[in-house]
Design a protein around this nucleic acid. Structure first.
Lengths: 247, 247
DNA sequence: CACCCTCATTGCGCCAGCGCAAAGACAGCC
DNA sequence: GGCTGTCTTTGCGCTGGCGCAATGAGGGTG
């Protein structure tokens, strides 16, 4: 990792919220402690239950963070894109990864060993503060999703999930916004705590209402406004919900 | 806040995971920046949506952290007891509290203003690292509960909630472990994403099986082992579940 | 081009758990 | 002690969405 590559990596890190506000020398030092690693699509970077030894930041590609219950049912906690971090808790000794990180496609990540990261955190308070910020945001998001799962009905949750994905991986195309990643019905189900059947039914319905277009592992939102209306439970949606609140 | 009181507070803070590993002078400095505040039971320390300006640690009593959906349905994210922190994200400017903190009974908390806390974090890297640890643990727990909510059925979730509460507020009494706090069916429902009716039915069932004893806002576990069996979906539970997995 | 494999759709039946209502049980208070 | 308000229990009916099975639709590969 040197020359142009290193420069590119620096750019990337500088842009990520985790390293924002750090000066050049600090960044160079931090970067020097990292190791770059490629993973093939479908491979796991690390698995739930393994001792957590490495912390990582995505350079290219996308990770899928999942947890699986004892009955084998999987849940997607989050997708992680370039510049974002995973496995922050690898900083601490004696912990296991609480989730599995899959490479969705071929992906490249920067990895830090626990000890190195601990040292960096002590030496660069700004890095520590950024880490706290990152975790706060993650926490906020999961709590939010927890509330949704507990209080909202399926369609609403799917709408929200789609809107989040648009924010994370939306790409303007003619006729709407494409969620630019491989996204199966099963994935959406695991994100929203439902089944692929239900997701399929809901998407079909929305497609017939012109809210989105879906193909194999691909979703394009053509009417984001309607989707927001569903997510927020406003009376705007065309396929009007009559039975209002749940519970 | 001085004299014996201050000494007591120091003890308390020293014991809390957030301030562990800090030396005496640092602790004194940190403590000096705090302000103690009493809240009456049922009052809110801060509310969801307000600008987050203060960070706090519970000294006495217990807080209930809740979120409410647009339809008014409340969810309990967590109970916070002595030595534990709430509203870590108050460290950052421009954020709002993502949840409301209610005092369950009369409670006393130490509060830090944002600026003071930021300065402390910069000056005491160990404090920053502790904060990261705290957040990591919280994140892990919420993610875990998210998975439960998405994949497990009600009885299982209630069992887990009770076991967690035992860990947080369990007190050995003759005949079992009492969850030493005011805990209504409604509370349990809001913790597990169900309704008070369903909770009531489940508890009644368990009571008839001798797994626990329940009174008004009070639960005593008499057979923790059976509860664990239910939580882990082992075949041990007396009131055997026949329809196994969900989904 | 034909085959295969994975993903998606749709109909149908069913049940866990919600929602409401009505009644009962405590605890606190005057 | 009687009253009131909150918390709890339980019956009953209903339905959202699960679960399965069968079929269809692409995309990739040799």
């Amino acid at each position: 990792m040197e020359g142009e590559h290193a420069a590119t990596r620096l750019e990337m890190l500088a842009g990520s919220s985790l390293f924002g506000g750090l000066d050049r020398p600090a960044m160079t030092e931090i970067l020097a402690a990292a190791r770059e690693r490629w993973v093939a699509g479908g491979d796991a970077l690390f698995r739930e239950g393994e001792p957590a030894e490495r912390f990582c930041v995505v350079v290219e590609g996308r990770l899928k963070l999942t947890q699986v219950g004892l009955d084998g049912h999987e849940v997607i906690l989050r997708f992680v894109g370039p510049g974002e971090a995973a496995a922050v808790l690898a900083i601490f000794e004696g912990t296991d990864y609480p989730l599995t990180a899959w490479a969705v496609g071929p992906a490249s990540v920067l990895e830090w060993q626990r000890e190195a990261l601990q040292a960096l955190l002590q030496r660069h308070p700004a890095l520590a503060v950024n880490t706290v910020r990152l975790l706060s945001e993650r926490l906020r998001e999961v709590q939010e999703r927890f509330r949704e799962l507990a209080t909202e009905r399926v369609a609403q949750r799917i709408a929200r999930a789609l809107l989040r994905l648009v924010r994370q991986a939306g790409r303007k195309v003619k006729g709407g916004v494409l969620i630019d990643m491989s996204l199966s019905r099963q994935n959406l189900a695991e994100l929203t705590g439902t089944t692929l059947f239900t997701v399929s039914r809901v998407l079909s319905e929305w497609e017939s209402q012109g809210i989105l277009e879906s193909a194999r592992e691909r979703v394009t939102i053509t009417n984001p406004h309607a989707l927001v209306a569903i997510a927020e439970d406003l009376p705007g949606a065309s396929g009007e919900e009559k039975g209002k609140g749940k519970r």
